[in-house]
Amino acid sequence: MSRALVRRETVSGYLFMLPCLIFFLGFVIYPMVQCIVTSFFDSTMNRDDIFIGLGNYAELFQDKIFLGALRNTVIIVIVSVPVVCIFSLWVSSVLYDLSGPLCSLFRCVFYLPVVTGSVAVTVVWKWMFNNYYGIFNYLGKNAGLIDKNINWLGDERFALGCIILILLTTSVGQPIVLYVSALGNVDQALVEAAEVDGATRLQVFWKIKWPQIKPTTLYILVITTINSFQCFALIQLLTSGGPNHSTDTIMYYIYYNAFKLYRYGYGNAMGVVLAIIIAVLSAIQFKASKSD
C-alpha cells in the first residue's frame, strides 16, 4: 500500500472518530481533570476558589462520617460482589439446562428489575419494609418469627442489610443473562468428551466450563464492584444515609457535600479517592484473572 493511501486512510479514520472524540474529551476527560484540580481547592458557590493543596484530603481522613461511609461502602462491596457472582452463576447454570421458552421466561423474570426504573423498584421495597403495614412485618408476625413490628429501614441494625438485599435483586439480572450466553458458547465437544471419560458434573464445570467463562466472570466482577461502590439512588430514596449514618455510602456523602452544602472541592476530593479505590480493585481483579 502506498504511503499516500496509508496517510489518506489514517486521516479518514481520525475524521470518523472526531465526533466521538470531541464528545469524549468534553464530557469525560475534561470533567475528570476538572474534578482532580478542584479537589485541591476550597471551592463553593459565588466565590473564587482558594487553593488549599491537600487540605481536603487531610480533612477527609479525619472525617468520621466519611470513614463510616467508606466502611459501609466496603461492606456493600464485600457482600454483594461475591453473592451476585455466585448466585447469578448458579441460576444461569440451572436456566441453561432448561428448555428454550422456559429459559427465556426466567431470563426475563430475573432481568425485569434491571429494566424497571430504580425509583419504582425502591418504592415497592419501601412499602414491603414499612414499619407499620409492610409485608415483611405482616408475614413475620403471622409466622411467629417476630412478636412486634421491626422498623427495618429505621433501625441501624437492619438498615444496611435491607439496602444490600435490594441491591442484590437489582444487580443479578445482567450477570445471569451474560452467564447464560457464556455457557452457550462453551465447546460442547469438550464437555461430551469429558463426560464419556467419566468426569463428574463438578469436574466438568471446574475443568471445562469455568476456564471458558472466566472472561465473562471477570467482566461481571469488575462491573458489579463498580456498581456496588457507586450505590447512591437506593440510599437517597430510602434512608438518606440514616439512621445514625448507618447507610451512608461514599457516593451519597459526595452528593450531600457537593449539592447540599455546596462544598465542591471536598466532594471532588472524595470522588478522586473513590476513583482510585475502584481503579486499584479493578487492576487487582484483572491481575488475579491473568495469573490463573
Binding site: 414499619n131 403495614y133 422498623n151 429501614l153 429505621g154 433501625d155 439512621p243 445514625n244
Partner: peptide
Amino acid sequence: NFDASIVGGDEINLFVNGT
C-alpha cells in the same frame, strides 16, 4: 416513636390512613 424510616410526607400519609 422516633421513626428514622419516615419523613414528613410519610407521616401525613400515615395520619391520613388512620395509622
